[in-house]
Amino acid sequence: MGSMESQQPANPSTPDSSETAQSLINWELAASTAARLAPPGPALSRAEIGKAVNSLRRSAEISVPHVHEITGLEAARDLRDSHVLVVDRASWSKANAQSFAVMLQPALKQMLDSRRGAALTPAAAATSGAITGSQLGAVLAFLSSKVLGQYDPFAALAPESKAPPGGRLLLVAPNIISVERELNVDPDDFRLWVCLHEQTHRVQFAAAPWLRHHMLDEIEKLSTHLLGNVDSLMERASAAARSLRDRSGPGDLPRRGAILDLLQNPEEKASISHLTAVMSLLEGHANVVMDAVDSSLVPSVKTIRQRFNDRGKDRGVIEKFIRSLLGLDAKMRQYSDGAKFVRAVVAVAGMEGLNRVWESAEHLPTEEEIHDAKLWLERMGL
Rank of each mutant, 00 (worst) to 15 (best):
L382P: 00
G353W: 01
K146Q: 06
R191V: 03
F321M: 13
K94M: 06
F190A: 05
N309L: 15
S144C: 08
S248N: 05
M111P: 03
M279L: 14
H213L: 13
L192Q: 03
L211G: 00
E267S: 15
A270P: 10
D188G: 11
Q150E: 08
S32M: 01
S232K: 15
L104K: 00
E368A: 14
R356I: 05
T121C: 11
G133H: 03
D291C: 15
K221N: 14
L325W: 02
R80F: 10
E283H: 03
E61S: 11
V185M: 06
A119M: 09
A123F: 08
V87F: 06
A138K: 04
G41N: 08
P153T: 06
L216T: 03
L211D: 00
H197P: 00
D231E: 14
F190Y: 10
V301R: 04
E28L: 13
M279V: 12
G72P: 00
E352R: 09
K221H: 15
A330I: 12
K51H: 15
G257C: 13
D246Q: 14
Q98T: 10
S17C: 15
M290I: 04
R46C: 09
L56Q: 03
I176W: 00
A76L: 06
K302R: 10
S99T: 05
L275R: 07
N26P: 09
E160G: 14
E48W: 10
A240P: 04
A34N: 08
M332S: 07
H371C: 08
N229E: 13
A10H: 05
M279I: 12
R212N: 02
N11W: 10
A173V: 06
L227P: 05
I62P: 02
A347Y: 11
M351F: 10
A258S: 11
I304N: 04
M351D: 04
G133T: 01
M111Y: 09
D291Y: 13
I70M: 14
K146Y: 02
L183C: 07
E28T: 13
R242W: 12
Q7N: 07
R80C: 10
L104A: 04
R305V: 06
E61L: 11
A10V: 04
G353K: 05
L263P: 11
M1F: 15
H197Q: 03
D16T: 09
K340L: 10
E378V: 04
R256H: 11
P65M: 05
M380H: 05
S178Y: 07
E5A: 14
A208E: 06
R356V: 02
S93V: 06
A344S: 14
R356M: 07
T200P: 00
M1R: 14
H197A: 00
L56D: 01
K374I: 10
A173Q: 08
N96F: 13
E319H: 07
Q264T: 15
S280L: 07
E319Y: 05
A130F: 07
Q105D: 10
